[in-house]
Amino acid sequence: MDGPRGTALLLPGYTGSKDEFIPLLSYLLDAGYRAVAVDARGQDETVGSDDEETYQQEALAADVLAQAEALGAPVHLLGHSMGGHVARAAVLADPHPFLSLTLLSSGPAQVGEERQLQLKLLLGALDTMTMAQVWEAMQKLRPVNASPTEAERLRLRWLRTHPSHLRVVGRQLLSEPDRTAELALLTALPKHVLYGDQDDTWATGLLQDMATRLDARRTVLTGVGHSPNLQKPAETASALIDFWAHLPGA
């Protein structure tokens, strides 16, 4: 093989980062794909500003278009959770830099009722508490189930995240409109909806309906919640590779 079979651009979710795709990377590389995982501006190691306008969805989508161009578009685009909403906004702004779109555990509109309540509590806390204080409060309510080393890594990642990113994107997740009909009009763009059967951020019925409305390939992983990339990376990578490999012209 003279070069990679294709390039994939991977966008993380709301409180995540590029690191959450690490379990996928070796599988994609072994299959011949170049995969590039990025933070959104204000996430983890990517610098953000206090200007809330820089975190609006249109600005984040413009970043994705610039990243695709820098990678030598066209690329396969994947967005996890909130990253799926940003990915959708990017392809709706300009579908030409993309070979395909995968929505990984990413629903058609605002998050479900339980997640809405959690988001509202977080946004309220960010108005009166420091990021360190918010982290401590979250651990009391819902401790991280991880080794001490991993828990410390997650704490430091949280502290590096800009609170303005969390505020703006959190409000977006509470009000995200259903743009499925717009996305379905991009009939030349192959689409893939991939999620776990135990997703707790969007009802799985909504995810199934979205896939139908998009005429998209649908992959459901059993025994998996909101992060297939972390919970079953081999199966997630296999589904992605199979989708990309069977696209026209692959």
Rank of each mutant, 00 (worst) to 15 (best):
L121N: 10
N145Y: 02
M131K: 15
E182S: 14
A132D: 15
E150Q: 12
K191D: 03
D178K: 02
V169M: 09
F98R: 13
L101W: 03
A188S: 15
P177R: 00
L194M: 07
E69R: 15
Q198K: 15
H192S: 04
G83S: 04
R115K: 11
E114P: 03
G79W: 01
T128Q: 13
L186P: 09
G83I: 00
L189I: 08
M129R: 10
A87S: 05
L71W: 10
G107K: 07
V134T: 04
R115T: 14
T187I: 06
H76R: 07
A89H: 00
D200A: 11
Q133V: 00
A87C: 01
P163L: 05
F98L: 13
L71V: 11
L154V: 09
L126A: 04
R155F: 06
K191E: 02
R160N: 10
A203L: 08
G112P: 05
L156D: 13
Q110Y: 11
E69T: 15
A109Q: 08
S147N: 07
L77Y: 00
M129K: 11
D178N: 10
P148N: 03
M131C: 08
R160K: 14
D127S: 12
S147C: 05
H192Q: 08
G196V: 08
S164G: 08
V86L: 15
A137L: 11
Q133D: 13
Q139I: 05
E176A: 12
S147E: 09
V134A: 11
L159W: 03
A125R: 13
V75K: 01
A184D: 11
W158P: 05
L78Y: 08
Q118Y: 04
S106H: 02
L77I: 02
A132F: 05
G83P: 01
R155E: 12
S175D: 07
R153P: 02
A89V: 01
L185V: 13
T161Y: 00
W135P: 00
R160D: 07
A89G: 10
M131I: 09
L141G: 06
D199V: 01
G124N: 11
E114K: 14
P190N: 14
P190L: 11
S147R: 03
P177W: 00
T201E: 09
V144Y: 03
D178Y: 02
A151Q: 12
T201P: 00
A125N: 10
P190Y: 12
W202T: 02
A137S: 14
M82N: 07
D199L: 01
R167A: 02
Q198E: 15
H76T: 04
T102W: 00
L166I: 08
N145V: 10
F98S: 13
A188C: 07
L189E: 06
T149V: 12
S105M: 05
A68E: 11
W202D: 03
V168A: 12
A68M: 13
S100K: 10
V75F: 03
L189Y: 08
V111T: 11
P74A: 13
L92C: 10
V86H: 14
A68C: 14
L123N: 12
H192F: 04
S175V: 01
